[in-house]
Computed example of a mutant assay.
Amino acid sequence: MEPNDPRADSAFRSVHRLIAGYLAISILTLAAIVLMRNDPAVVTPAVWTRAVIVVITAVLLILFATRAARGSRGAFRRLRIVSVITPVAIVVIIALPGTFPVWMKIEQGVCGLIMTGVAAVANGRYLRSRFAVRQNAAK
């Protein structure tokens, strides 16, 4: 990726903001789980597991986006892949009956919308073109 590309910089700022929102919601959810931990109808082992996975994923996404913005093709590839897989996993979580309480399905729906935005920007034509491997025509 070329340095000082205002359009790419703007796209990565958007990605960072979206992921920061995803991380903030995830941390707040984990804090709520800690506060409600004594209610087994609201906080199940699956809720704990999912919340921790989401926070870890959000932190990794911040790292991927930061490195991608600095030009790392590998980090950009990981950002693109995770940003697509995450909303798909969230759709499955929302669709599975009885696995998670309604409040967490709503929270995951919000996270899914945020990550769909990340996926749209990260997988958009412009950023992909910035990271495309240029083929040497003189081969």
Rank of each mutant, 00 (worst) to 15 (best):
78 R>D: 01
88 V>D: 10
83 S>T: 05
98 G>T: 10
99 T>G: 03
90 I>D: 00
97 P>M: 08
76 F>H: 02
77 R>N: 08
76 F>D: 01
72 S>E: 08
97 P>S: 13
95 A>D: 08
71 G>L: 02
71 G>H: 04
69 A>H: 01
72 S>T: 11
70 R>W: 14
66 T>M: 07
68 A>Q: 03
81 I>W: 04
74 G>F: 08
89 A>T: 09
87 P>I: 00
79 L>P: 01
81 I>H: 07
79 L>R: 01
77 R>D: 04
97 P>L: 13
92 V>E: 11
98 G>Y: 10
78 R>S: 03
74 G>D: 10
93 I>S: 06
76 F>Y: 13
97 P>N: 14
78 R>P: 00
93 I>G: 02
98 G>E: 12
92 V>C: 15
70 R>F: 14
95 A>S: 13
98 G>W: 12
73 R>E: 09
73 R>S: 12
79 L>M: 15
72 S>G: 15
82 V>D: 04
99 T>L: 06
75 A>K: 08
76 F>V: 09
85 I>G: 01
97 P>A: 14
82 V>W: 01
75 A>Q: 10
75 A>C: 14
78 R>I: 02
95 A>K: 11
96 L>T: 09
66 T>N: 12
94 I>L: 09
99 T>S: 08
89 A>H: 03
74 G>M: 05
66 T>P: 06
74 G>S: 07
69 A>E: 03
86 T>F: 02
98 G>A: 12
66 T>F: 11
66 T>Q: 09
87 P>L: 01
96 L>N: 13
98 G>C: 15
74 G>W: 10
89 A>F: 06
76 F>E: 01
72 S>D: 13
95 A>W: 09
91 V>S: 15
85 I>F: 05
96 L>M: 12
90 I>E: 00
94 I>P: 00
88 V>M: 11
98 G>L: 14
71 G>V: 08
80 R>Q: 14
81 I>C: 12
99 T>E: 03
85 I>L: 08
90 I>Q: 00
100 F>K: 07
92 V>Y: 12
67 R>W: 10
72 S>I: 09
97 P>E: 15
